[in-house]
Structure formats: C-alpha cells, structure tokens
C-alpha cells in the first residue's frame, strides 16, 4: 500500500504548518516569563498586561484605521478590475490586468523602497498614516481582484441584459442585479484585504514615519526577551481574529461562487 505513506506525510506537513499557531496560545497562557517547556501553570496575566499599555492602544487604533480604509479602497478597485476582466477583450487587456496584479509577485522591499522614494522625493511629504493606506491599497488590490474574479467571471450576463430590456439603465441594472449577486465576494474581499493590511509589516515599517502600526509595535519589542510573553498574548488575539475573519470570508466566498453557479476551485490565492 502506497496511499498511507502520502497521507502520513500530509499530516506531518500540516503539523509543520500549524505548529507555530498551535503553540502560540500555550505560551500566551503560560505563567512563566521564560518561553520554554516545561510550562509553569495557567495564567491570563499577559493578556491583562496588554490593557496597561497606552502606546499599544494607539498602535491598534492606527492599524485599524489603516486596515478599514485599505479594505474599502482595495475592494472598490478590485470590483473595477474584476468587472473589467469579466467583460469582452480588447488589445493589451492582458497586459493591463497583469500590471494590476504585479504587486503580488514583486518583492515587498522593492515596493517599500519605491513607495518611500515616491512619498519623500516626488511628493515631498513626510510618511504618515495615509501613505500607508495608499501602499496597502496597492498591495491588497490583487488579492481583492482575484477573489472577486471568482464571483464575476461566470456570472450570467443575461440577468443584467434582462434588467436593461425591462427598462433599467446600465448602471441601475448593475447596481440592482449584479452587485447583490457578487455581494458575498465583495465582503470576502474586504475581509481578506483587512487581514493583509492589519498584518503587513515591511512596507508599513518603511512608510510609518512617526505612526506606529501594530506589527511595527510588535517589531519594536523584538530585543526585549522579557516582553516575549506579551507578544505571545497579543499574537493569540491577532491569530484568533484572523482565523475568525478568514472563516467568515471563506464561507461568503463559497456562497458567492454558488450564487454565480461556479465549481469551487478552492482557496484564495
């Protein structure tokens, strides 16, 4: 029998993939200051310690503002891109879509460098909260587009045409017929953009200036080993939040695909 070998490998691989996030809550609820086995008893004091940090709170606040604005902007661009992609071809269409999707494969440091140079050298601005929003929007648009592509691609165009035949204008046909059909995809794209923006570090660090986002704050604690349990507690909250949002996004994405009558190809990427 060869099949069990592959199955065993798959499970070992899943353990490798999940080891870090499974260990995270174990250390977060551990009493001891040193992150190591054996554990020294259950405690929630690291979570309580999170409340006593005003600098953390302002970091969370900036991160949330950035993530919300990014998810809205990226999803709007994603709707445009996916809608355009689903319509007829024209010359250079592939190139234009490829360019919109380019940030997906560009090394993040190159993006960070390019945007920092743009902000400081060309625009002459000091990096601030909104420059991070601009950058994150650029990075999240490809993800939003690829999720919305699934919702738009096989949508039956005849619904919209029927609405237009019945007297609706092109825009109201889109708004009243197509938009509700792709709504699950839209919410899913917003959630994914939100998660990406909330976790993004490399570009945010380059463009942060005097704004501290959550990952930048965590990064700032890297040299203080006594802060490690607090990072674990914070990480637990973040991971739980990510997984909840992710599951919600996945459920909505599947519902969107079902509405569009498409076979699920699986996954976001």
């Amino acid at each position: 029998m060869k099949i069990p070998a592959l199955r065993i490998y798959a499970f070992i691989y899943l353990v490798f993939l999940f080891a870090p996030i499974l260990l995270l809550p174990i250390f977060a609820f551990n009493e001891g200051r040193i992150i190591a086995f054996p554990l020294s008893g259950f405690s929630t004091r690291w979570f309580e310690a999170l409340w006593e940090r005003p600098s953390l709170h302002s970091a969370v606040q900036s991160s949330l503002i950035i993530a919300v604005l990014t998810s809205i902007l990226a999803t709007i661009f994603g709707i445009f891109a996916a809608r355009g992609g689903a319509l007829a071809n024209f010359p250079f269409k592939g190139g234009i879509i490829g360019f919109i999707m380019l940030p997906l494969v560009l090394p993040e440091i190159i993006l960070a460098v390019a945007l920092l140079v743009l902000v400081t050298k060309v625009l002459g601005l000091a990096p601030n909260l909104y420059t991070i929003v601009l950058a994150h929007t650029l990075m999240c648009t490809p993800y939003a587009t690829s999720i919305l592509n699934g919702a738009f691609a096989n949508l039956d165009r005849s619904f919209e045409e029927a609405a237009m035949d019945l007297g609706e204008s092109r825009w109201s046909a889109f708004r009243l017929v197509t938009l509700p059909l792709v709504m699950p995809g839209i919410v899913s794209a917003m959630l994914i953009s939100f998660i990406i923006s909330l976790d993004e570090f490399i570009v945010a660090f380059f463009l942060s200036g005097n704004v501290t986002t959550l990952p930048v704050y965590i990064y700032g604690l890297r040299r203080q080993s006594d802060q490690l349990p607090i990072i674990m507690a914070l990480g637990t909250i973040l991971v739980v939040l990510s997984i909840v949002l992710l599951v919600a996004a996945e459920i909505l994405r599947r519902r969107g695909l079902r509405r569009a009558g498409v076979e699920d190809s699986g996954g976001f990427l």
Partner: peptide
C-alpha cells in the same frame, strides 16, 4: 466592441492607480 470599451473603462481606475503608485515610483527609484 462596445463591451470591450466598457471593459477598458472598468479597468482604468485600478490601472491608473497602479501606474501612479507602482510605475512612477519605480521610475523614480
């Protein structure tokens, strides 16, 4: 086709955004 033109118009906003935030910055680099 008309449909192609509509596709172009729909793709324009994200494309222009990417030009401004990607092509111009890279050229500046």
């Amino acid at each position: 086709s008309d449909d192609g033109k509509r596709a172009f118009r729909a793709l324009l906003p994200p494309f222009v955004y990417a030009v401004f935030l990607l092509a111009i910055p890279l050229a500046t680099v």
